[in-house]
């Protein structure tokens, strides 16, 4: 049975309309009534509705784009990234002078450090006869390598400063008081881990600055009564700062400490979410 062209066009429009009403529910389009009427479907809107109502799309974006205040709260439950935040916060804690954004900035700096650090690892070989040459190459041969190294270095210094300031801020606002005691302790651990990350990274360029800073630093550990020399030996992997030290510090810097600090960071954020934003109270 062959259909007349007129009938076929009508059926197509009808099908588009059915699709787009399904989509409009999903899209929360305010003007869905006019946009997706039987006589104004059009190819683009049909394609759009086909995509956003498809199973793969909806498996990624479980909910439509938030439009109403209720959606804004619900997205804290349904979106992985947003759920790190509480659904709602006290309005006064939004003020910049409450936190100065220090904790968030420390987290941001960590992300920048992870990204630039991974890129540096493409060029860096942790061997005493290689490391320094790789640094010089990174400065002068690799495109934008100098900027990459500068960013990693300055972000590392900034992170130590910002984390320390964050701790000062929390102390002065008494934000460590009940129920946030545990999160203060985790914060102190995070400060120590930040300094350890910075310290282990200090050796990797294998220049005079790196070599002697680590020598001075590990000599202090060597002064512990009785076990000092053994502790120093374990840290250095030998009696002196050498190849064994470089690979130890490299593994600590790029694998062990980032993993540990990430776990503590996640725990820190989770506690913030559970305890609520102190907002200086």
């Amino acid at each position: 049975m062959s259909e007349q062209p007129e009938e076929r066009r009508l059926i197509r429009r009808l099908r588009n309309w059915v699709r787009s009403t399904a989509a409009s529910k999903y899209l929360h389009s305010s003007d869905s009534g006019t946009k997706h009427s039987v006589f104004s479907g059009g190819f683009r809107s049909a394609l759009k509705s086909d995509i956003v109502t498809s199973l793969p799309w909806r498996s990624v974006f479980a909910r439509p784009y938030p439009q109403t205040p209720k959606d804004n709260s619900e997205i804290a439950i349904t979106s992985f990234w947003i759920h790190l935040h509480p659904a709602s916060i006290r309005k006064e804690t939004l003020k910049f002078s409450v936190t100065y954004g220090l904790g968030g900035l420390a987290c941001g700096l960590f992300m920048v450090l992870a990204a630039t650090g991974i890129m540096e690892m493409f060029y860096y070989v942790p061997a005493t006869d290689h490391a320094y040459k790789d640094m010089v190459d990174l400065q002068h041969v690799v495109s934008l390598g100098k900027i990459l190294r500068n960013m990693h270095r300055w972000a590392a210094h900034a992170m130590v400063i910002i984390v320390a300031l964050h701790m000062l801020r929390v102390f002065l606002q008494k934000a460590y008081k009940a129920p946030r005691q545990l999160n203060w302790v985790i914060g102190v651990i995070l400060l120590c881990l930040t300094m350890m990350l910075s310290f282990t990274g200090y050796l990797l360029p294998w220049d005079q600055l790196a070599f002697w800073a680590i020598t001075v630093g590990t000599n202090m550990a060597g002064s512990i009564p009785l076990i000092g020399p053994k502790v120093r030996y374990v840290l250095l992997g030998g009696p002196n700062v050498d190849q064994a030290t470089l690979i130890r510090f490299f593994v600590l810097h790029v694998v062990v400490l980032p993993m540990v600090i990430s776990l503590f960071m996640v725990f820190h954020f989770w506690r913030v979410r559970k305890d609520g934003f102190s907002g200086g109270k």
Binding site: N72, A76, S88, G101, L105
Partner: peptide
């Protein structure tokens, strides 16, 4: 106390700061 949803108010500020 007046409460406000963290999305988009807080999330947008975080992106701006970053």
């Amino acid at each position: 106390v007046e409460r406000i949803s963290s999305y988009p108010h807080l999330v947008a500020r975080e992106f701006l700061a970053f």
